[in-house]
Design a protein around this nucleic acid. Sequence first.
RNA 1: GCGGACGUCGCAUAGCCUGGUAUCGCGCCGGAUUUGAAAUCCGGUGACCUUGUGUCGCGGGAGUUCAAAUCUCUCCGUCCGCGCCA
Length: 427
Amino acid sequence: MLDIKMFRDHADIIRADHDKRGILHDNIDEVIRLDDAWKKARYDADQLRRQRNEAARGIAEAKKTGDDEEAEKILAQVATLGAQIDELGVESDNLIKTRDSLRMKIPNILHDSVPIGEDEGGNTQHSKHGEKQNYSFSPKTHNELVDMNNWVDLPRAAKIAGSRFYFLKGDLARMELALQQYAIDFLTSREYTLVQPPMMMNRKAYEGVTDLDDFETVMYNVQPEGFYTIATSEHPLTAMFMDEVIEPSMLPLRMVGISPCFRREVGAHGQSDKGIWRVHQFTKIEQIIISKPDDSWELHEELLTNCVELWNSLDLHYEIVNICTGDMGTVAAKKYDLEAWLPGVESYKEVVSCSNCTDYQSNRLRMRYRTADGNEAVHTLNSTAVATSRALVAIIEQNQMEDGLVQIPAVLQPYMQGQTILQSCNW
RNA sequence: GCGGACGUCGCAUAGCCUGGUAUCGCGCCGGAUUUGAAAUCCGGUGACCUUGUGUCGCGGGAGUUCAAAUCUCUCCGUCCGCGCCA
């Protein structure tokens, strides 16, 4: 959510941003109109409250001196004030609620370096890492590989849960754990603090961190308490300091989160998304930073550097993409995606997303830090380190051998008792 | 799950019984004093707006009242005891 001051003093900046995104200004104008109306109603209500407070003081004074007659007189004079105040109070409450529910829908201000473009076709290449492997055979897709090695059981998962769930078995399940442990060690050695968050959140906190449409399409609602299962540890870790004033000495706060991620994935998805590429549940190691505004752009690059060095160390080929205006969501001001090469399907596909959300989440969450001039909103940043299911797909496609077995990346071998090849599961 | 206590500005704490201007301390910011620092003293230190002798704010919501931190109901959370439990 953008600061309301932005609408009052710099609406031109928001309008220019909407132009870059190719969306109409209607909502901006409506927020400004509602804000003016709210200020007016609020002022009128304040004036009435002021009258009432003055009268109440008069009554208190009269009662103190024992002048009951005077007290009764004032009481009669202000008899109708309460009803008027209630009426105006309801009006101003409605105005500000409408204003802010609309304000929640207005996207963040994009950074200047975000390329202009209508859709994902407008994304630009930021850099390329590693090389495509040369295979002396025709590389298989990850779906073929997990099938022939019995590493994934989709039908039985569908039977007991539903589609897009999976059993992960044998050596692939072991490598999944190795990958988690490796990524955590990699980041904790860079002074990121490991945090295991709650896997469910309440509605209020969740509204602070996500696009409102996500409640319909992404999150599971757990009854009877009405909690929402987290779609990523970004959400609890970012909302952790909700309603707090953070000591500046704590900033920047670097965290590495681990959690299962639950996603409803409502809507149709293409053939290429079958198997374990797009699933309802996976594990993700996530980087989170809470920072002062002046530091956030430098820290955004730090997050990307961590990703690059982590994925380089796995010996994988991938490219980094600078997401364009038309492909950016509501929350981020700038976003890099890391797209790994999948030789089986001959395309680059998204495995990491690295965002600077500036003060958009912290305005909603009322998350500030203390400065000499008062409290100021912090900036929040997040980046995948590894989403295990997708990282597994990249590893098995790129490291596959002619017999369908897979070489384990050297850095993961110590986490698997020195094993070098993923063996098939025999059932 | 049952019973009890509690929730007050960044932290800590008084006010609640008996309704009538948000208390003391710490930390922080500014000023005075000083060569500088410490110490001391003074002032400030939640949010909002049309900046006023203004309004709101005491975990959230509702109610009673001219008036609620204070009384009532309800929800949330914390702590203690009991029960259950990996």
